[in-house]
Amino acid sequence: MRTTYREAVREAIREAMRADSRVFLMGEDVGRYGGAFGVSLGLLEEFGPDRIRDTPLSESAFTGAGIGAAIGGMRPIVEIMTVNFSLLALDQIMNNAATLRHMSNGQIGVPLVIRMTTGAGRQLAAQHSHSLEGWYSHIPGLRILAPATVADARGMLAPALADPDPVLIFEHGSLYNTEGELPESIPTCDISSAAIGRTGTDVTVITYGGTMPAVISAADELATLGISAEVVDLRVLRPLNDATIMQSVRKTHRAVVVDEGWRSGSLSAEVSARITEQAFFDLDAPVMRVCTEEVPIPYAKHLEEAALPRPERIVRTARELVGR
């Protein structure tokens, strides 16, 4: 069955709500408007205003309400319009959702799922376009997911809702219109491992989420140059699945990390450091990174494109590493 990433997320929510009456969706414009990115279109009609709840423009308040509902036995899905706005809820996410299990000595769990849009590429300028999932990946107590494929967009929600602790799902805004094949019966999906997006032998390109299309296109280009790139899709940004990364690097002996976050203090820095710690003696070249330029994401189309990790930069970096 051919479907879009947006429809896949919607189907996942619909399935979860049909399966478990404790599940409900809340966020800005998720009801009558159908969601800022159209994800929840039609769900209000099917499930009614009690389970598809429009909220005031207060991320802190409705995220906090979601935490309370989760503690109280519900299975809320909170949608935050973009990761930039999630900073208004950062106190709730970090100081409450991520800590209560620890601070209550295991008595209080927060089985909450927060979905939010991340990333640039749609000329939404510097207050709607950043990639801050690397920041959230810093916080113990959270599980961070970044579905890059239609299959993960469809499959990750159910295990996230089943998780007894808070899970954040980052959906890259440029992926909603991408299409992919889904089997009729949805296979179970794990939220603990990284995946090999494409096998190769000469260089490992590690990425996740919204930069996956650029990496795949770079891998195609590299193949025409006789360079076989293996693509690792991290999928889970916290906790990182080191074994899959190292297995690939031990095979290719070279690694490029592609991350739409800024380079300084980024998730790409974390991945690079782990490779150096665990696979140093299998490396034939330094670990390289392709990240977003360290500027607020520009509005102008050509500047925005210039700031983001593009296939040409990935190809050039991989070629430098391989020496061809």
């Binding site: 002996h253 140093f280 003696f281 299998d282 490396l283 034939d284 070249a285 020496g323």
Partner: peptide, 30 residues
């Protein structure tokens, strides 16, 4: 490269014999 150093130590290969044939380049494990 770190891998080349490790392999050279394991296999008893004198790295100077490789370095002289590929000047200015990085000696890799292969």
């Amino acid at each position: 490269s770190p891998r080349a150093r490790r392999l050279a130590a394991e296999r008893g290969v004198d790295l100077r014999t490789i370095g002289s044939t590929t000047p200015g380049r990085v000696i890799t494990g292969d």
